[in-house]
Nucleic acid binder design. Structure first.
Lengths: 253, 253
DNA sequence: CGCCAAATTGAACGGGGTCAAACTAGGTGG
DNA sequence: CCACCTAGTTTGACCCCGTTCAATTTGGCG
């Protein structure tokens, strides 16, 4: 299921590229230029030392990387592909708390046990670090620590948006928010404007938005009828009226 | 509404006490001892330099400290009292994303504008830092930055729990989770075991749990009928069957 | 082409919302 | 000290959005 590759591969320190790319590309449009540059300058030397600590792990689609409740000796950085992060209730109800892509970190929360599960949504590659050496290096590298704080803060802000969505938005508002947020999350696959790839299946969208697959499907149909979107396949759609969609997402109706 | 006190008061650097207290007291029970010690050792000298940057601000109950969308020149640390953090939709729907108490930081996400609002729930005191000098100091003090990362990671973990609650839990499960989480959040007012202070009103509980005040009230009544809790006043209750409540919170049953 | 998981559509139900009324409590002034 | 007043809470009746259960259609892949 999980296959560790040769350490030799590590020399090229794949996480370096991932980290830097992500920091420079998306997300930071709302940060001041200053924050951006701090991301960028997380010196190559530090990142390379980080790379030297990494084990590269390849995941097949559907492979479980992290199981909630297991001891948590590792921190991960995604270098290719995408993962879903979720929490379960004993009866099987699932809440997906996020989709992660190349460049994202996982398991930073310092806790003896993982507090969420994570699975590959497609064939993916991650770098794995033992927590001890990882923290030690981070502690000695202010730019690294700064980058982690910066990212974690952004994730927290995203989490607060998701709380608003889950607690107070209607089904159509949730879907609209989702469709507008989705592109630009995968730095390795920039999408044409207006085109939205839905790499996940309906069940995952539902569990991310706090809905059921039936409601997801019905809402998409309603959106098509209203002319807000059009679909080519179940995994690809086109936003026909972005402004209208944005209004729904913002709860303006 | 907002009254800045004499800078002289700052000399005693009240945030120092707050920071250290909180780090040592709650929260970290699930961190390894190492993490704890890192919190604790966020050297007094660094914290004092932080204190020198602070302006002390007193807030009356209900005062708005932060308004979503406003320019965001400051970072805050709460030294006394409690705040609610929330996001609004244009039609007035509100999602409270968290309650903050003495020792908590606000506004760390580096963004040009605040992405949430914050109000005092009672008479409170906060320390205010200009973002520039604050980040500069933090960047020069690895222990400080580490503490911030540590806290932010924990907040993120809490946010993920809240997403599970908002997306997948029933009304009674939400309330049970809330009642069990609430105590131990205010380090300045430790509560007797089994006793839960509800300093907020029903509307705030509702907006935190993604429910309405009527449902909050009905669920509390149902809990009383079931013998799970008993109430002395609307703002104080006693958990009669903690194990049963815990089961509800976990979604067993 | 045929298979089967995934997605869509339909019909009926129900948890929680909405609207409205009754009740409490805690603060105020006489 | 108590009667009053009002914000806050509780309770009741009804309704609706999203769920549940079930049947049908689609489409990706051998």
């Amino acid at each position: 299921m999980i296959i560790a590759l040769e350490p030799s591969l590590v020399q090229r320190s794949p996480p370096v590229a991932a980290c830097v790319d992500r920091a420079q590309s998306s997300d930071c449009s709302n940060c001041g230029a200053r924050a951006l540059s701090v991301c960028g300058t997380a010196d190559i030397s530090d990142l390379q030392r980080l790379g030297e600590l990494a084990e590269v792990i390849k995941l097949k689609s559907g492979a479980v990387l992290i199981r909630e409740g297991d001891p948590a000796p590792h921190v991960f950085n995604i270098t290719a592909g995408s993962l879903r992060v979720y929490k379960l209730l004993p009866d099987g109800r699932r809440q997906i708390t996020g989709f992660l892509f190349a460049g994202d970190f996982l398991g930073l929360a310092i806790s003896e046990f993982y507090v969420f599960s994570a699975e590959a949504m497609e064939a993916s590659t991650v770098c794995r670090f033992r927590k001890g050496p990882f923290s030690a290096l981070v502690a000695r590298s202010p730019p690294l620590e700064h980058m982690l704080l910066h990212r974690t803060s952004h994730e927290l802000a995203a989490a607060q948006n998701q709380m608003l969505l889950l607690g107070r938005k209607t089904a159509i508002e949730r879907m609209a928010s989702f469709l507008l947020d989705l592109p630009g999350h995968d730095p390795t696959r920039p999408s044409a404007p207006g085109h939205v790839r839905l790499p996940m299946k309906r069940a995952e969208i539902a569990d991310y938005l706090g809905l059921t697959i039936e409601t997801v499907s019905r809402v998409l149909t309603r959106m098509k009828v209203k002319g807000l979107i059009s679909t080519t396949s179940p995994h690809e759609l086109i936003v026909e009226r972005p402004e209208r969609l944005r209004q729904h997402a913002a709860g303006e109706v």
